[in-house]
């Protein structure tokens, strides 16, 4: 069967507290699994909690956020498992994982690259700190790495400052930095959102190639279903803090089982000729504020199929076959016909 998971998020909830408002549960009871060599895409609209989930894994959340329950079990091969949710923020064991075994890349490379150091120095530094390499050896590996992420003239570009590079090259440099210590997990938070389509295609290619080379697990956060279809093996759809549906990318796209996933897919224009053109059927209304989230299924207020249990009872995960499951009352109410 499949390889053992390297990261298992179980029943994780993240809450934000603020001095003059009630606490907000930004992520509630999320279960996710990352497997080496596979990509899990976390997809959803803004404010759905996908970035919070990713940041929780590295404990990069603001001070007013707290993982209230659940566990983040990190099990690298041949090592004892660690529950990241139980580690103290900024403790040594956490820092040993962060950047070293689990790395992250962001939407805006400038936010993670220091503007006053050259690209090469920054990557060298990672290797020197985490792996104790000598500066000379580190630079050799840096150049090889920059070359691998497709930066032309790697040796010269290593001496460039981030602002001297174009957006695409900067993104590549950030990826190189994330890969400096050959992490087992790469978390990519909307890495292509700020890029042009052609650059985006190149970066997606690169990530796929690097995953094949390094065999790392990837958690890919995006709002773009097109990108999901391009890069993901597994997909988890989030809405207002809930993972409403997850499964293999082929299953979820072929048989979206949660009304939200379906609505999302009907919201993107199909690439079709005028004759086959169907009018978009958008989801009505807007995403409610987290504090107005219905007690039951979060999607109740916008769901065309909502019925009695939806506003009050939170639907359980229902398996619709092949490890593909969704949280929707409809699935348990009306049994899905499974053709033989």
């Amino acid at each position: 069967m499949a390889e053992n998971p390297i990261l298992t998020i179980k029943d994780m909830s993240v809450s934000f507290s603020s001095p003059d408002e009630a606490d907000i549960e930004a992520v509630r009871q999320v279960d996710l699994t990352l497997t080496p060599g596979k990509t899990l895409a976390l997809v959803g609209e803004s404010g759905c909690g996908k970035s919070v989930t990713a940041r929780a894994v590295l404990r990069l959340l603001d001070n007013n956020a707290e993982i209230r329950r659940g566990s983040i079990r990190f099990e690298p091969e041949g090592q004892a498992p660690t529950d990241i949710a139980r580690l103290k923020p900024d403790s040594l064991p956490l820092r040993a994982i962060r950047g070293n075994q689990i790395a992250m890349i962001f939407q805006e490379p400038m936010s993670s690259l220091s503007p006053v150091h050259t690209i090469g120095d920054q990557i060298d530094e990672m290797m020197i700190i985490h792996e104790g390499l000598k500066p000379k050896a580190a630079r050799e590996r840096t150049v090889a790495l920059l070359d691998q992420v497709g930066i032309p003239g790697a040796r010269e570009r290593a001496d460039a400052y981030p602002f001297q590079l174009s957006g695409g090259l900067r993104q590549r440099a950030m990826i190189a930095m994330a890969l400096a210590c050959t992490p087992q997990i790469l978390i990519a938070d909307e890495p292509t959102t700020a890029l042009d389509v052609t650059t985006q295609a190149q970066i997606l290619d690169l990530l796929r190639q690097l995953q094949a080379d390094f065999g790392m697990a990837m958690l890919f956060i995006t709002h773009d279903l097109g990108v999901v279809a391009e890069i993901a093996d597994e997909v988890a759809v989030m809405y207002l803090g809930d993972v409403v549906e997850q499964g293999s990318v082929y299953d979820v796209f072929a048989r979206p089982s949660h009304p939200y996933t379906q609505a999302l897919m009907n919201s993107i224009p199909k690439l079709a000729r005028k004759a086959d053109r169907v009018r978009l059927s958008p989801i009505k209304g807007t995403v409610p504020a987290p504090k107005d989230r219905p007690e039951g299924c979060a999607f109740t207020s916008r769901c065309p199929y909502a019925f009695e249990p939806c506003p009050t009872i939170r639907p359980a995960q229902t398996d619709v076959g092949n490890g593909h499951h969704a949280r929707c009352h409809l699935l348990t109410r009306v049994p899905v016909e499974e053709p033989a």
Partner: peptide, 18 residues
């Protein structure tokens, strides 16, 4: 099978609180 669909859509979702 006629399962009642309750009108859930409250106006609050569409209109931001004043």
């Amino acid at each position: 099978m006629a399962v009642e669909t309750m009108p859930i859509a409250t106006a609050s979702a569409a209109i931001p609180r004043p």
